[in-house]
């Protein structure tokens, strides 16, 4: 039985398609059975839902003050009207925590998107062209990775001045080399894979192979990294807020800032430190668990 050239091409490509579909299906099956994945996904879902539906969920406006309720160092604690109590300006803590999820989500998603798109574009160039393009991109990545990530973010955010945008850019830029390296590495290994070699030998153009097959098949580690990067972005944003980088508007309910502010009230109102701290831990944990579970599920080595 002999196949024509075109048919042979199709068959090989379909096989790569199937291999990918198989991997995804397989990964899904394993994710559903992993408690780590289920806990992680639940926390992430909870976090995203809270962020999206904040206006519906929050009982009060996050910036509405009631100064008559507070005295220096004394803020009403949890009550039926205010489940998590009031903060130092008589604002509803629960509403602030709920709205805070929005800022964390936006900072996380935007910064990781910046890092991933720019990083992937560079990685794609490096992986597809090789040669001096590859060398240039990878050396630049090496240099950026030579600066510890939070330090680099601090430097960039300090440079751009106090605003949420500069925090997002800072964390995004820090992520660029990670994604660039990752995609390039994955593409190099995919390029040597059987179906890619087979396609090439059957005369499929290089560009088509890269775009339609090598690139999509290299995305798995990127997705894993993006999930993990979201976790890091949230802690890094908190760290930057602690250092006074972030929005110049102090009334913004940003978790890191709220946590840093409570240092002054730690002794008298320790609960006020607990809530934003807990919110950060839960959301970071969610992304981290989900990311790790994805990594395990998508790792071909574990598909025995």
């Amino acid at each position: 039985m002999s196949l024509s050239g075109a048919e042979a091409q199709e068959t090989v490509l379909t096989q790569s398609e199937e291999a990918r579909g198989g991997l995804v299906r397989d990964a899904f099956r394993r994710l559903r059975r992993s408690p780590q994945a289920i806990v992680g996904a639940t926390l992430v879902l909870l976090f995203v839902l809270v962020a999206v539906f904040a206006p519906l969920l929050a009982p009060y406006s996050p910036t509405a003050q009631d100064l008559s309720q507070v005295r220096p160092g004394q803020f009403p604690g949890p009550s039926a009207e205010h489940l998590l109590g009031l903060d130092q300006l008589g604002r509803d803590e629960l509403s602030r925590i709920i709205y805070g999820a929005r800022y964390s989500l936006i900072i996380g998603v935007v910064s990781v998107t910046i890092g991933a798109t720019v990083g992937m574009a560079l990685g794609l160039l490096a992986g597809a062209f090789g040669g001096w393009v590859d060398g240039l991109v990878m050396r630049a990545a090496d240099i950026m990775l030579a600066v510890p990530s939070l330090l680099l973010a601090i430097g960039i955010a300090a440079l751009l001045g106090r605003s949420i945008t500069s925090v997002m850019i800072a964390i995004g830029v820090v992520n660029i080399p990670v994604f660039a390296r990752l995609l390039r590495g994955a593409m190099l290994s995919q390029r040597e894979s059987d179906y890619a070699l087979a396609s090439r030998s059957l005369g499929v153009t290089k560009g088509r192979v890269v775009l339609k097959h090598v690139f999509p098949n290299s995305l798995a580690p990127v997705i894993v990294q993006a999930t993990l990067a979201l976790a890091t972005a949230i802690t890094e944003a908190a760290g930057l807020a602690f250092l006074g980088l972030g929005s110049p508007d102090p009334s913004i309910p940003e978790w890191g800032r709220m946590l840093a502010e409570t240092n002054a009230y730690l002794a008298s109102e320790p609960l006020l430190a607990l809530w934003p701290g807990l919110a950060i831990v839960i959301s970071v944990l969610g992304f981290y668990l989900l990311g790790e579970a994805l990594r395990e599920a998508l790792d071909p080595k574990l598909r025995r």
Binding site: A231, T235, A238, G239, F242, G256, L259, A260, N263, L266, A267, P270, A273, G277, I280, V281, I282, V284, L285, Y288, L289
Partner: peptide, 21 residues
């Protein structure tokens, strides 16, 4: 897992609060 998720400065405050103060 907790160690990875908790912001370093928050942990610092926590340690200071309990073990020093």
């Amino acid at each position: 897992l907790l160690g990875i998720a908790i912001p370093v400065f928050a942990l610092g405050y926590l340690l200071k609060y309990f073990f020093a103060i």
